[in-house]
Write a protein that binds this DNA or RNA. Structure first.
Length: 102
DNA sequence: CCGATGACGAGAC
DNA sequence: GGTCTCGCCATCG
């Protein structure tokens, strides 16, 4: 159903992120054919079900930080998942540039 | 219908 | 380089 709208395109774009890679919201929107709709991407992800084949944890903001506030399960989980893929974090919580090599 | 909010980005100062 | 403001789309009150 084309009614799936860009939301499906965004999910697809995220699922296209290779292992050990991180991408920003703007980049996802751009890949989905919606340049400038970074917020729309975040909105879709927020509606994501608990079990999904979409590597949402590889999606971060352009600042290189996890968008979730600290002390939250989602923030901790995303951090653990990224570390499990070989991605490292700075003392400030920022993702190291070595993860952007893709 | 209008205003406010949200896992953001980019430009302006 | 840091801070502020506007813009984008969709949903909620």
């Amino acid at each position: 159903m084309d009614n799936n709208e860009p939301s499906q395109a965004i999910l697809t774009a995220i699922s296209q992120i290779p292992f050990g890679c991180v991408t920003s919201y703007g980049e996802i929107a751009k890949r989905a054919g919606l340049p400038g709709h970074a917020r729309y991407v975040g909105y879709i992800l927020r509606n994501l079900p608990e079990q999904t084949n979409v590597p949402w944890h590889r999606v971060i903001n352009s600042q290189g930080f996890i968008s979730f506030p600290p002390n939250t399960e989602q923030h901790a989980e995303q951090r653990l998942r990224l570390q499990a893929e070989g991605i490292s974090f700075s003392p400030t919580g920022k993702i190291k540039l070595s993860a952007y090599q893709c």
